[in-house]
Simulated scan of single mutants.
Amino acid sequence: MRKQKQSSSVVGYQLYPSLIDAYTDYSKSEVIYNKYWGGAENPSLTLEEYEAKAFQDLIDKINRVPKDLIKADIGTVFNDLVDCLILGRKSEEVEVEKLYDEAGNVTSLKASYNGRTFIYPVDAVRVFAGNYKGAIPQMFVEGVLPTRRGDVRLYGYLDELMPLSVHDIKTTGSYEVGKFKDHSQHLVYPYCLKQMGYTGVDLFSYDVAEISTNITKQTPEPPEVVVKLKATYSEEYLFAPERDIPILEGKVVELIDFIEANRHLITNPKIFASE
């Protein structure tokens, strides 16, 4: 692969993959509701209440309102542990303790983060780290996407960059084939890499850890979350510019339309790059 200096451009919006994905989820609110609660006799929320919550969640995401979610922390800490093993360094964000069996072998990693404790099987961390030897973890990428609503700056941190592929680590309680096909990372990151002059990086893989969790401590004590690995999967996509750039543009324009329709609710000026 080859790196060149990226040309500058005046842009009107600055967007990142998880925000694009949040809009996609919002746009499918009714489908998601019917999938999980459509057949329930006494759902905790009505469809209208669920759609209202999804709308507010998206507005909060745009405005970068902090959310304290155990599920998000599980993935964040797991990624950090994998990166530390790849780079052979200690974490700057997570306090890690090794747990041993009676024979003196390391069995688990106990990680303290965000007021919680997470325990991961060390073999799971080693399996993922072993797949990314020589990778560049948490690489910042950016690119400018021309759209019918003007130029848009796309940016983000990809999990693992290999010489010919990009990898995003996912943790989930349940996996099904094609779970991430509507996500945008496999569109945004290869596009940005090409904008930055990296050639030949067309393969994108969502590398999935299907896990189970058990919370062994409850409030008022800090939660202790024991994570077990059930299975691993890879969901791969080959970036084809002539097919994927129009798809990416469509997603971006839909999000921009939503932002403009609700501009009076937007408090995060970074979204509007020209302001």
Rank of each mutant, 00 (worst) to 15 (best):
D202L: 09
A52Q: 08
R126E: 14
F55N: 10
Y206I: 08
S29R: 13
Y206W: 14
L19N: 08
L161S: 09
A261Y: 04
I247W: 02
S91L: 00
N214S: 03
E176R: 13
K270N: 06
K71P: 07
W37P: 06
Q14D: 09
K170C: 10
P241Y: 03
E224W: 05
V82T: 06
K3H: 04
F258W: 06
R148H: 06
Y50P: 07
V253R: 09
S234W: 01
L248Y: 07
G134E: 09
Y36K: 07
I245C: 07
M162I: 03
I86N: 08
T267F: 03
S184Y: 03
E30A: 11
D159Y: 10
K110Q: 14
V11W: 01
I74N: 02
A124H: 01
E236M: 11
R116V: 01
S112H: 06
F204M: 15
K71L: 10
V96N: 12
E102R: 11
D257V: 08
L265P: 07
V10C: 07
R64D: 14
M1P: 08
A22Q: 12
K98L: 07
R148F: 04
Y36H: 09
L47Y: 00
D168K: 08
I86L: 06
R89E: 12
V65F: 00
K179A: 15
G130S: 09
L99V: 14
E236Q: 14
V252T: 15
R153C: 12
A54T: 12
P146M: 11
R243M: 12
L248E: 06
K61L: 00
V94R: 07
T117Y: 06
L187K: 08
V122T: 14
D207F: 01
I20Y: 02
D151S: 15
